[in-house]
Design a protein around this nucleic acid. Structure first.
Lengths: 343, 343
DNA sequence: AGAGGGCGGTGAAACGTTTCGAAAATGATG
DNA sequence: CATCATTTTCGAAACGTTTCACCGCCCTCT
């Protein structure tokens, strides 16, 4: 910029004024400056600008796993929204690890991100402290966080699982296995509540042997399913509370020599683009990923636009049960399944 | 930092020296400074540091689509590698759009990223110019780029498709449909070459009616497949050159009332984690995503570590044909398929 | 003609670091 | 005890912007 100013024979202040349009500069000087900028190939240094302005036009986004299609989709939408608004996005994957998450958030704050979208993991206390210190707006994604009073976008997990389990019960299932993720994040808690309440509403007992926990990965779903299937009185249906784990469930069913839905029905949380084309077509709870991402982005963009001290807003979106053919009516003849599902 | 210096009754230079370990500072002062840092809760401002040092410890990563599982996996690996090395990653999705890509790369360079990993789209000329100006190391991912002479990690696409098509031919297929992505990126070019060469090697004609183009998305695969299936002499097998498009292929097959592999065989590029558990189990060309991501990260980290003027390195990795049950031997009885695939 | 008001332009301070040369303190040596 | 060498500390100048107070200038109005 100094160089441009010299070539155009003006002061740096004038160059800055022209570039930012913060003051009117005469046609002659404007032309000289623009020419100089072209000649030199000058590009404004965003770092210096950030230092002076105290804003980086960059936000931080942390998710547990980027390979989980749910987060992939949400990240994609968020990325697009901020792209449109002229922001860059720094992406971090915490791998469901608390320390990693803290490190990454600190890293982001050191770099003066203007805002943060966090699908938090673990206890919220540390997150709260980190975020209170740095004075940046934070939007919580997918997971609420006790004690951190800030904008939040979540699903009505309890209701969604309630509906799914009720559907299984209506099909005649009485022993329904449930595979949960670790319990320290709110969705897993709420989903479990939905499971229990659906059973209770139907007057069915809650049997702890039918509930297994895993750490969100395929292998965990595999192990949990193996345990469920080796019970003396094995469940007739399994619900997996997360999306990568259901792959493990299907593998376990295959490896043990059973077939879905003939021998065992399966449903799960989170929808896949390919769910309705490969067999069995999984019955799933679809999250409105587009809306979730857009709402999260909007909440943060609104704060960034200056609306700092509005009270925290919490958006709860609804899931949708996508009924396909991976769950069969219990007791009904097998042929009935094909009929009950219309392509 | 000024504040810390005041509280500890030393100069900022000393504080800086202690923090960075660039000079020895006496035990007493060290202790006073550390105490002050703790009391104040001081965190070094990475932006100011970047401005002075000319390095941000941040890299830019642009991919066409984050929802494509191949890129998702690669991004994940790259992210982890740079995380370990203490770098932040700015992620951009170009959506296969040339202008978007250019804007984003400029955005990244303005922000003084230390390096760039790019799965480029479109013509390389603009990319080359942008990158030559800014003097940052660039690694090309997945796609080579004529005229841009820099580190590159790609797959041997030609060979991979050659093997896959040859496999189909060996099964007895003679009319093999091929669905390509847009031709302006190298992998699509090379994959097509693999297709042609496999046909030629088998003495089969190359019929242009069997080749369709799409823009990488599911809908494109759907449309292309519809066209292929409505040919008067329809192909007995279809190969899809990219991963989201094969979903469209399967949907088209379903909607038209056919079945895979009974009526038509399908194979595609890129593997899915669920490929071997849902039916039909897709025969795919698996890319070594982990190796690709790691190699790209290593190449860039090596440059960042100072190895600037080593000649450009080009790494070509091998794909692996994952034979499952979505392709059936032509003419053989259907029952043979199940046997030929061992779980 | 003098006063007041816009407008266009500028110099210099600030943002929070790092770094370099110099100054101060310490220790060793004759 | 003076001198020199070595270690520790510090002041101040950068890095590339933005911004604010100020300064001319020209125009318009009494």
């Amino acid at each position: 910029m100094l160089h441009v100013a010299e070539v155009a024979r003006v002061s740096v202040a004038t160059v800055s004024a022209l570039i930012n349009g913060t003051a009117t500069v005469s046609p002659e000087l404007s032309q000289r400056i623009e020419q100089a900028i072209r000649d030199i190939g000058y590009k404004r240094n965003a770092i210096a600008r950030s230092l002076k302005m105290g804003t980086t036009r960059t936000i931080g986004l942390t998710v547990p796993h980027i390979t989980n299609p749910f987060f992939t989709d949400v990240v994609s939408v968020i990325q697009q929204a901020f792209d449109r608004a002229g922001y860059a996005v720094m992406l971090c994957c915490t791998d469901e690890d608390l320390n990693t998450q803290d490190d990454q958030i600190r890293l982001l704050l050191d770099r003066m991100v203007d805002g943060l979208i966090v699908a938090r993991v673990g206890d919220g206390a540390i997150l709260k402290r980190i975020v209170d210190d740095a004075n940046v707006p934070v939007v919580l994604l997918d997971r609420v966080c006790e004690g951190v009073d800030t904008d939040t976008v979540v699903l009505d997990n309890q209701r969604a699982v309630f509906d799914a389990i009720t559907y299984l019960i209506d099909l005649g299932h009485r022993r329904i296995g449930y595979i949960s993720g670790s319990f320290d994040i709110s969705p897993m808690h709420d989903r479990m509540t939905g499971y229990r309440e659906a059973l209770q509403a139907a007057g069915l007992p809650i049997e702890s042997e039918l509930v297994r926990f895993g750490n969100f990965h395929e292998v965990d779903g595999y192990a949990a399913t193996m345990q469920l299937l080796s019970l003396h009185d094995r469940p007739s249906a399994i619900f997996s509370a997360n999306n990568p784990m259901v792959i493990g469930t299907m593998k376990a069913i295959r490896d043990i020599g059973l077939s879905c839905p003939d021998d065992i029905s399966v449903a799960c949380f989170d929808d896949f683009p390919w769910s309705d084309v490969f067999q069995p077509q999984l019955t799933t709870v679809a999250q409105p990923v587009k809306a979730i991402g857009e709402q999260a982005a909007n909440l943060l963009l609104d704060r960034l636009a200056g609306n700092r001290d509005a009270p925290p807003r919490k958006l709860t979106l609804k899931g949708r049960l996508m009924i396909r053919n991976s769950c069969r009516p219990l007791g009904a003849p097998l042929a009935a399944i094909a009929q009950s599902v219309s392509a």
